[in-house]
Design a protein around this nucleic acid. Structure first.
Lengths: 220, 220
DNA sequence: CTTGTCCCATACTCCGGCGTATCGGTAACA
DNA sequence: TGTTACCGATACGCCGGAGTATGGGACAAG
């Protein structure tokens, strides 16, 4: 008999482990201690079992890594973009996506950083796919917004670079990032900078007073 | 034509190694295969010696790591900012710094990524110091440019995030980044976005000629 | 020539993670 | 009740890197 098809609550204590449980634990380990923390015996200890369990579900360590990467990639691509598709307007979708990314859970961000800093080829390729998916989506959005090809590409590249940098700062330099409600101000600032307004020509003169609050509403 | 009296050329084959040689080799290893590639025996093989040499110069592996981090930190802070101090005007200096950062050698960038993605506390702290030094410098520049405190902070944070993201893309998603002369266009776009106000166009073209010269770093 | 210092080689031990082989227990069937 | 698939425990052997102990060659000074 196969198990339930519904995705179970991630931390529900189960009598017997599944491959998915191991993959989730691997993601946790990656987020906390980097990719080389995906080691069989430490993970087994953490899960309260021994290696015997692991080698029942997986052939070798690399298989677990592969499963974890696959899982994370699904989270990052389909899920994130799908959740941004609520808004009908393109500009709305960009707003939504940016807020989405600013509020993704810690684990996903840390996994991203760990994978991209790793020397593992599969991990790097995985990050590459996620990145390109995200970036291409944003570039297309900019294009629909009226920018030309290279313009859209430039804006998308800038937006993605900013995202990555923000994620990294959130982990390595949290002091340098605004916190609390100040972070909302910063987010508003980012959106003002990264989403071309209806009058792009007037940007330059307008930008010098960037400290003033944006005119748009925003989610708490 | 190379100077012989000062620090010798990094890759000059020497009869006997020094601690600095080991530190440089460690940085190379970090850049290529991540921080855990700083392993005594592999490095010794690479340098054509054995562990005996290493444990003469260093007490343990951690000491080598420390030396390598210290070396890299000096490169990244003092050198980079010092080379940007040419221009008298603040706006000039920002331009110069941005071009500088867009053209740092591969190794420094890869080391930065490897260190920040690592689980090593010392490495992370090192990156944190470098980051904060850089960011504070830029924030101050923005402040001198006429922005208020929070405005300068926002712009500096955005600028640094963009830098980090660009570095990461250059390694993990080079396809998504413009290449050749297109990269110069993108760089011009970035500067237009990240430096408020008019650009010193005359110096602009002059600096663009030096973009991405694919050179090796030569410590001053 | 002798002595001492510097730099490195050789040959170990120790340890932790990987992978394998094998056996035990449990629950769902027939 | 007995069988069988499923899941995990125990006990190995192997490998590679971290340190340690010790010896040896080169070379300058006396």
């Amino acid at each position: 008999m196969e198990t339930q098809n519904m995705t179970p609550p991630r931390n529900a204590p189960r009598a017997t482990l599944t491959a998915a449980n191991w993959a989730e634990a691997a993601l946790d380990a990656i987020a906390e201690n980097g990719i080389e923390a995906v080691a069989v015996e430490p993970l087994a200890r953490r899960l309260g079992v021994t290696k015997g369990s692991f080698y029942w579900h997986f052939t070798h360590r690399e298989a677990l890594l592969h499963a974890a990467l696959e899982l994370w990639e699904r989270y990052e691509t389909a899920d994130t973009i799908a959740r941004a598709e609520n808004g009908a307007d393109t500009r709305e979708r960009l707003h939504s996506l940016f807020f989405q990314l600013a509020n993704t859970d810690q684990r996903s961000e840390r996994v991203l950083l760990a994978l991209s800093g790793s020397d593992n080829a599969a991990a790097r390729a995985c990050v590459q796919r996620v990145t390109e998916c995200w970036r291409a989506y944003v570039e297309d959005a900019y294009f629909t917004l009226g920018l030309n090809r290279t313009g859209a590409r430039h804006w998308a590249t800038l937006a993605y670079s900013t995202y990555i940098g923000t994620v990294r700062m959130r982990r390595d330099n949290p002091d340098a990032l605004p916190t609390g409600s100040d972070f909302n101000d910063y987010l508003r600032f980012l959106i003002k900078m990264l989403i071309p307004g209806p009058a792009p020509a007037a940007r330059d003169s307008e930008l010098l007073n960037a400290a003033r609050p944006a005119t748009e509403r925003l989610p708490a």
